[in-house]
């Protein structure tokens, strides 16, 4: 807008008209090009998704059977399933999210609402962003020294905590970003009605930012549902049926990690089935959450 209008030098209405015409054409053309590129970008993104899902379906579906859901992992050649791994993944992912989300939400709220100008706020924001890029294996190692060595063994709890540590910074980032974008007018309205600050945050801001925060939580779930590295040294994995959080616990990613490179066809097949299950499980969760959280408009 700005650059364009300055280049017109007035010298007669006819010439102005021509220049304006050329300019308008140029602007329209530019607009079309950008729109076309955007469409192209979207097509690329979707193409990747389709390619990945197609690969998973192609390699995973043929291994699907009822036995996958009703039998625990077994040695090669024994018709094993994934029951314990599926359940372990569900438990640890749910628990990790349950621990990490409230903390992340609070930290994000602190950063957006209470930390203005404070050194502590800057520091917290900074470390939270650094935590985002922490390789998950290092988080696993940290939880290992924190919860596994002192308590003398691997446990589902340790795995869940490791996952929670990954959830926190993702939720923090999206929560803060979303809260900051809520128009001042909305808060002022709440204050004018005599609501205390915490109420205006919980009932006005959280609600207004709901979609964005939910996106953050879903991204976090998506990320931890497929994490192998932090579980390897915390919940270890379990070949047998076990839902005891105090004991080693199986999970789908760890099972994939150990089966995918094995010499045996049935294990490799199960690895692809597990991959299919994680991906489509998270997919279904996303779609479901989107439907539940349908925007008000």
């Amino acid at each position: 807008m700005t650059g364009a209008s300055q280049t017109i030098h007035a010298s007669g209405p006819a010439r102005d008209g021509k220049i304006a015409d050329r300019l308008a054409r140029k602007r329209r053309f530019q607009n079309h090009v950008v729109q076309g590129l955007c469409l192209f970008a979207t097509a690329i993104g979707l193409a990747f998704l389709v390619l990945i899902l197609a690969t998973l379906l192609h390699l995973g579906v043929k291994g699907l059977s009822l036995g996958v859901f009703t039998t625990v992992t077994k040695p090669p050649g024994s018709n094993g399933g994934l029951l314990n791994a599926i359940l372990g993944s569900l438990i640890q992912t749910a628990l990790g999210t349950a621990i990490g989300t409230p903390i992340g939400l609070l930290v994000g709220t602190y950063l957006a609402e209470y930390s203005a100008g404070s050194k502590l706020g800057d520091a917290v924001r900074f470390v939270s962003d650094v935590l985002l890029s922490a390789p998950s294996i290092l988080i696993g190692l940290f939880v290992y020294t924190l919860l596994v060595t002192p308590f003398g063994g691997f446990s589902g709890w340790a795995g869940s905590v490791a996952l929670a540590v990954i959830v926190i910074p993702i939720v923090v980032r999206t929560t803060e970003d979303m809260l900051r974008l809520i128009p001042v007018a909305m808060r002022e309205a709440a204050v004018a009605l005599g609501a205390p600050k915490w109420k205006s945050i919980v009932f006005i801001c959280y609600r207004a930012a709901r979609d964005g925060i939910a996106t953050g939580v879903l991204l976090a779930i998506a990320r931890i549902a497929g994490e192998t590295a932090p579980l390897l040294f915390t919940s270890l994995g379990n070949l047998n049926w076990s839902v005891d959080l105090g004991k080693p616990m199986a999970s789908l990613p760890v099972t994939i990690y150990q089966y995918a490179g094995s010499p045996f066809d049935d294990w490799v097949q199960l690895a692809w089935v597990a991959a299919l299950l994680i991906t489509f499980g998270v997919l279904a969760l996303n779609v479901l959450a989107r439907i539940v959280l349908r925007p008000r408009s």
Binding site: I91, A94, L95, T97, A98, I99, T101, P102, L105, G156, S242, V243, D244, L245, G246
Partner: peptide, 19 residues
């Protein structure tokens, strides 16, 4: 945010039952 606490509770219950 009632969902997480519900999750925790049910997971706890699950782990207690199956020990």
């Amino acid at each position: 945010m009632q969902i997480p606490s519900y999750f925790t509770a049910s997971m706890l219950a699950l782990s207690l039952v199956a020990t």
